[in-house]
Design a protein around this nucleic acid. Structure first.
Length: 585
RNA sequence: CGGGGUGUAGCUUAGCCUGGUAGAGCGCCUGGUUUGGGACCAGGAGGUCGUAGGUUCGAAUCCUAUCGCCCCGACCA
């Protein structure tokens, strides 16, 4: 039980100028956090209480799934990272630590780094400690601070430089075991998000820098999210933008019959899809071939899409290039023979075909018959272009960005789209990390195998903010019961009145015995101030004890999420409130 | 890192264009009146106007540099 007058809940009437989104404003206004610097936040008592509850539930669900908690150092010797598979892409976000502190030691390469994640630390550990199949499978996790020098910290705790994360790592003897571990984590995640009272959707995701064979992101739907998720509730399909597919190309689609021979026609100045759609050309975007020149590991390649489609760059990962970017106009002309706007892939029109690493095409262009594309001569296009007869494609694949309303790949139902906040991610890594340092075990036939790994993360501090983003109104936070810093607020309107104070104390004790965390607002403030603050800090259950009610022989009970006030007779208020709390927990 | 914005009291900000004693609201302190949805009156404390140069008789205001912060992009829990 805490008394507000002796506790520390610095609430603010106005939002800080640097907060943009509702949850960020409320974190500060409700006295949960204060900013130290960009992406660096102090957790004030209320924020810490909420976060500790999130951590506790996370820990319980991880342990229930069989995972084992440990704690690894935040400071890593740099050699654990140097030359590893992720050193290139990840080093930019790693904080470097100079142990001497005088700038003289290791100025070129850091001696230590602050851990952004722990694959590089746990894999060597397990390599030396687990050598037999008898000790597998194992799944470890920890909950602690992570450091990432984000290029652009954003939205308070949403993308911070220092944040609290649960990270887990599974080690299995074979692929089937790894899939089992992965599914166990998926279940644990779902249980966790359910318990903290938030809606999180598991979506298929791109593996990105982590590598690995497949992964799911857990997204909290919110307008301010940084990712789009495509889903259909009936079919159960859900994927993020990078990964989302749609069934717009029917199975066994026959190529349309050619109308006639290809034919060049002049299109002076028409260098965009839109320009060709307009008069006098009037070629619909979905009858155009769009040819993009990309550079993969220094070598140009072509990507052909429908005019109406956009390239999803994350999907280029399947082509096997380490680094992909768009080509510059200067790079394009010598290869293609024309400037962007008149490019195409009709056989024989590319100036320097040998320079290309490949000509790739999105499956959806198979919907285009008798289409139009650039002639690789400035100001000239070609019509009546048909894929099989006229184009040279080295590989088809799914490279386009899906659009809302397209049929989902499972049942063909329309895809819906929402913004979401990524709060958790699970990866089936395979042997990427174990292979690098030869981490493995011996099986019952004395044969050596590599560990098959998985890794798992939940952004604890980010989840806290995502919950607020999802659960608030114009007056403040509406905490889910399970993670509220306090579940019950005894709003003592007359702290100078002995009778009221006594009643408040009795109710607070009863609530506490029933299992709730109780805050008593005993401040010498006017009722209006107390009610406004109560709404702002979002305590789920408010009990108001005041002179007016006492005269009437009642106290008032109000749920933060509800409108109506319930009057409870004084004589059995303790029992009633205790029962309500026990029912809730 | 590219583009845009912004820095004035603990917080929110006006003043800047057109240079001339730095102003308000909230919060805080004192006294009084109030007391069921952010009270009122009176008095008070609190500011090297981000920092460093420059222009000028004179700079919060104009110029240059620099730093911090915020927003959009690529990346992530």
């Amino acid at each position: 039980m805490k008394f507000w007058s002796r506790y520390f809940i610095p609430t603010l009437k106005e939002s800080p100028a640097d907060a943009e989104i509702a949850s960020h404003k409320l974190l500060v206004r409700a006295g949960l956090v204060r900013k130290l610097g960009g992406g660096l936040y102090t957790f004030l008592p209320m924020g810490l209480r909420a976060m500790q509850k999130v951590s506790k539930i996370c820990r319980e669900e991880m342990e229930r799934s069989g995972a084992i908690e440990l704690l690894m150092p935040h400071i890593h010797p740099a050699e654990f990272w140097a030359d590893g598979p992720r050193w290139g892409p990840v080093r930019e976000i790693m904080f470097r630590v100079d142990s001497a502190g005088d700038g003289k030691r290791g100025p070129r390469e850091p001696e230590f780094v602050l851990g952004p994640t722990h694959e590089e630390v746990i894999t060597p550990l397990i390599k030396s400690e687990i050598t037999s199949y008898r000790d597998l499978p194992k799944c470890f996790f920890q909950i602690g601070t992570k450091f990432r020098n984000e290029i652009r910290p954003r939205f308070g705790l949403m993308r911070a430089r220092e944040f609290v994360m649960m990270d887990g790592y599974s080690f299995d003897a074979d692929d089937a075991g790894a899939v089992k571990s992965y599914m166990a984590m998926k279940d644990a995640y779902e249980a966790f998000f359910k318990r903290i009272g938030t809606q999180a959707i598991a979506v298929e995701a791109d593996t990105g820098v982590m590598g690995g064979s497949f992964s799911h992101e857990f997204m909290v739907p919110a307008e301010v999210g940084d990712d789009d998720l495509f889903y259909n509730e009936e079919s159960g399909y859900a994927a993020n933008r990078e990964k989302a597919r749609s069934a717009i190309v029917p199975e066994g689609l026959a190529d349309p019959a050619p109308l006639g021979p290809t034919e060049e026609f002049p299109t002076p100045g028409a260098v965009t899809i839109a320009a060709l759609e307009a008069a006098p050309y009037s070629v619909p975007a979905d009858k155009q071939f769009k040819t993009l020149v990309m550079i993969g590991d220094g070598k140009p390649f072509l990507m052909v899409l429908r005019g109406c489609d956009d390239l999803e760059e994350a999907k280029l990962g399947s082509l096997g290039f380490a680094l992909v970017r768009q080509a510059t106009p200067e790079e394009i002309e010598p290869v293609m023979g024309a400037k962007p706007g008149s490019l195409g892939t009709v056989k024989g029109t590319i100036k320097d075909r040998a320079a290309l690493a490949g000509i790739f095409a999105d499956n959806a262009i198979r919907l285009v018959g008798n289409g139009t594309t650039g002639a690789n001569k400035d100001g000239v296009h070609i019509r009546n272009v048909n894929i099989a007869r006229d184009l040279e494609i080295s590989k088809f694949g799914d490279f386009r960005r899906v659009k809302a309303g397209e049929p989902d790949p499972i049942g063909g139902r329309p895809l819906q789209v929402r913004r979401g906040i990524e709060v958790g991610h699970i990866f089936k890594l395979g042997t990427k990390y174990s292979e690098r340092i030869d981490a493995g075990y011996t099986d019952d036939k004395k044969e050596r195998h590599l560990f098959v790994m998985g890794c798992y993360g939940i952004g604890i501090s980010r989840t806290l903010q995502a919950v607020i983003e999802q659960s608030h109104d114009a007056d403040g936070i509406i905490w889910p019961w399970a993670i509220a810093p306090f579940q019950v607020l005894i709003c003592l309107l007359d702290p100078q009145d002995a009778e009221a104070t006594l009643i408040a104390a009795r109710l607070a004790t009863a609530a506490e015995h029933a299992g709730a965390d109780v805050l008593v607002d005993d401040r010498a403030e006017r009722p209006g101030v107390k009610f406004k603050d109560a709404d702002l800090i979002g305590v789920p259950l408010r009990i108001t004890v005041g002179g007016r009610g006492i005269k009437e022989g009642i106290v008032e009970m109000k749920w933060r999420a509800a409108k109506e006030v319930v009057k409870i007779p004084l004589n059995d208020a303790e029992a009633t409130i205790g029962q309500i709390i026990r029912d809730k927990a």
